[in-house]
Write a protein that binds this DNA or RNA. Structure first.
Lengths: 365, 365
DNA sequence: GTGAAAGCGCTAACAA
DNA sequence: TTGTTAGCGCTTTCAC
């Protein structure tokens, strides 16, 4: 392909290249017929005023003749002019973009966190860029790189150890949503899974359950983070002297169907369990639905306990008992921490933030 | 029609004209001692090389001595250097940001659309900024202004007539998600609510229902857009010669609770309705839940038909029959249209895109 | 009320 | 391999 073929029409003749646009690079991602940018200078020229006057008109400044302003505005619109946010951002240093990294938009947990983040960001006049990783290892690493390039601060759910390390090692103000049991040097919000899980399990045991199964997230099994929920399950059962059959622990894909499939597997081998403690509500709901479809009564034959406190837990029958996390608050706190970091606070100066899951008794357990 | 001619009186459409203030006012949350930016020149100076060499190191270019690179990188990290995305964006014209405007992250409809948008954007290497309006009039207008300032193209759900007009009148490539019955000059995706609603109503009528209530969105009542679902309801009932009691039409807040409250109001006055056609699944689910709580059997005493085809419809008992919209595809198409616009296509050159809601028979009707 | 000049921080082209 | 030069498009002084 010849060079000329890649050059937008009218910018470069066959003979000599007009040097004005000669330095533009043409990335393969950009369609070749990309609308060339209309600049403030072009508007100025077309209107016969200086570019500052155009700037004044566009920015609604006072020191300008109303008539001139209107003329400029009309021309600007007609020419399709829009100020470049890059040029503006370069000169006005106050435009802040926050990167929000979530695992899965379709899991209702994340929209709630997102709502908190968006609200807190909006209060500060920040804009929010959203990235979805699916908790894939490769994707997480990629997204961390993007973060460095594209935003002023990051707030993220990250499952994989190296992605977290990379994010924390960069120069970007970075907050971990669900900090887990990680080193205190990484700022973030800790969700007290241990406390929550303990409260839930003790509730189940208090209700007389002994054969309590656990539907664990298969992703969490592969991630290098310590899985607080399963550990706690084992510990509490141990403390109470309740023997645990390894078959009671089933990995589940993090989805309704995943929960259902895991439940079916569980029942085929261990029909005698009387309660299920799930990694989260989505898995719990899938499991409960399947259990009922298979003829079990809930909670009489089998009780279900979720984790997260999603509102969709109220839709199933019976409504799901769960450990409720204030997800909106989680998002808000993370933004507050990001603001502190951005203001120059050291990573160790960020106050410890812990979200305490609360037992929300509905009817499934 | 000229671009300028479509601009509403008193609006300017370019830059941020009728804004609250030119300069964004800072919330008290942001401390004033913002960390001053470390620049590439400072790193260059500290390392004793030129800034171009720093640039090469940072961008992992090949024409640089590995040892120099490492020295620069170390210094950069130590100094807390991060390239300015504005300066970069100014010189590399290929960084594209898409603005996605949704009404409510917490309504599962939007995460699904968002998933489609994020995926399509990622394929193109675009980043996505998300704005949430709550369908509030003021917010919609504000967000449109932000769009002009902050992104290269916008894809939006907008309820209010003037917000749409403003967005369409600006120089920003703009795509309306759910274009409704609006002027063809606004690019966007049309969801065929008429076709969907007709299919749904004929299904109900075919099942023998005559006293069919409609739970309408109270927001849609206030928005200036024609409410296709209610119009169709009236029209189809009229065509079939089925008399409609105005009391059968209840406005509902767009939420589970809103649907429940509306259902309760409906039942208190019109216990004899045999089917409910809801504005969307969220309202339908709330209504169905409340109806069952009040002792009605579904679908025997009262059938329920939703709109949207949300997956949460599968969680309730009985699973919700609904008009399914391919929300993910909707998001993808919108991004494709935005790409065309960005590539310089005229508004009238955008191919017509229509999403056809499909009757998804589960068990509630 | 308007214009000229001086950058903001970075990368691409070219020179050394 | 490295440095120098020339902008990218805009806003902010500071003159006029």
């Amino acid at each position: 392909m010849s060079l000329a073929a890649r050059v937008p029409d009218g910018e470069c003749g066959v003979g000599h290249c007009a040097r004005r646009t000669g330095r533009r690079s043409y990335s393969p991602f950009v369609p070749t017929n990309r609308r060339p940018r209309v600049t403030i200078d072009q508007v100025a020229q077309a209107t016969g005023v200086s570019r500052q006057t155009v700037s004044r008109a566009i920015n609604n400044k006072s020191e300008i003749d109303p008539e001139t302003r209107q003329r400029v505005l009309d021309a600007a619109r007609a020419m399709g002019y829009r100020p470049s946010r890059f040029a503006r951002g370069l000169v006005r240093q106050d435009l802040i973009t926050l990167g929000l990294v979530i695992a899965d938009v379709l899991n209702p947990f994340f929209p709630e966190v997102t709502a908190g983040v968006l609200e807190a960001a909006e209060r500060r006049g920040w804009q929010v860029v959203v990235y979805n990783t699916g908790s894939e290892h490769r994707k997480e690493l990629e997204v961390v790189d993007l973060l460095f390039d594209q935003v002023d601060a990051g707030v993220a759910f990250l499952l994989h150890h190296d992605a977290i390390a990379k994010a924390a090692a960069g120069n970007l103000p970075f907050v971990l949503l669900d900090k887990g049991g990680r080193a205190p040097a990484v700022p973030g919000v800790r969700i007290d899974f241990e406390g929550g899980a303990r409260r839930g399990l003790e509730y189940l045991i208090g209700k007389g359950h002994r054969r309590i199964a656990m539907l664990d997230d298969e992703m969490a099994l592969s991630g290098e983070a310590p899985n607080a929920r399963r550990e706690l399950y084992l510990r509490v059962m141990g403390e109470r002297g309740i023997p645990v059959d390894v078959g009671w622990i089933q990995p589940a894909h993090n989805s309704i169907d995943g929960g259902a499939a895991a439940m079916e597997r569980l029942l085929s081998a261990h029909r005698d369990v009387t309660a299920v403690f799930a990694y989260n509500d989505v898995i719990a709901i899938g499991a409960q639905l399947r259990a009922r479809a298979l003829g079990l009564r809930v909670p009489e034959d089998c009780a279900f306990l979720g984790f997260d406190g999603l509102s969709i837990g109220e839709l199933v029958e019976p409504p799901l008992t769960t450990l409720h996390i204030d997800k909106r608050r989680l998002g808000e706190i993370a933004v507050e921490q990001a603001a502190l970091l951005l203001a120059g606070a050291g990573e160790t100066e960020i106050p410890e933030a812990v979200i305490e899951p609360q037992l929300l008794i509905r009817a499934s357990a």
